[in-house]
């Protein structure tokens, strides 16, 4: 069975802050990875910039030594819990 390679995803949530590692996903190439990342990691409008890097290209250190894409997401108000009127007195929702 064909398996698609792993990509690490970094998202800059807004201007003024740096990219933060959001997680990973699978895709056949960089363009697909970017598109997938937009769908998977910024559905609730959490990003202005995405980086994708093949997981295999990341070099890690050992602990002991130590406008357009994101607009459509902004109006899907039913994703946010505050959209619903919770009856008075009902707790833990």
């Amino acid at each position: 069975m064909t398996a698609l390679p792993l990509w690490e995803v970094f998202v800059r949530p807004k201007r003024g802050v740096s990219h933060v590692h959001a997680g990973s996903l699978h895709a056949s190439d960089a363009e697909s990875a970017l598109r997938n990342a937009r769908d998977v990691y910024t559905r609730r409008g959490e990003g202005v910039s995405i980086w994708v890097v093949p997981a295999a290209e990341v070099t890690a250190s050992s602990p002991d030594e130590k406008e357009a894409w994101f607009d459509p997401a902004a109006d899907k108000i039913y994703r946010h819990p505050t959209f619903y009127d919770v009856p008075d007195g009902v707790e833990h929702l």
Binding site: Y78, R79, H80, P81, F83, Y84, V86, L93
Partner: peptide
């Protein structure tokens, strides 16, 4: 990340 999204799920079910 999941818990943030999950409360929407429970709330829509209750609603």
């Amino acid at each position: 990340r999941i818990c943030k999204e999950e409360s929407f799920h429970q709330r829509q079910g209750f609603d």
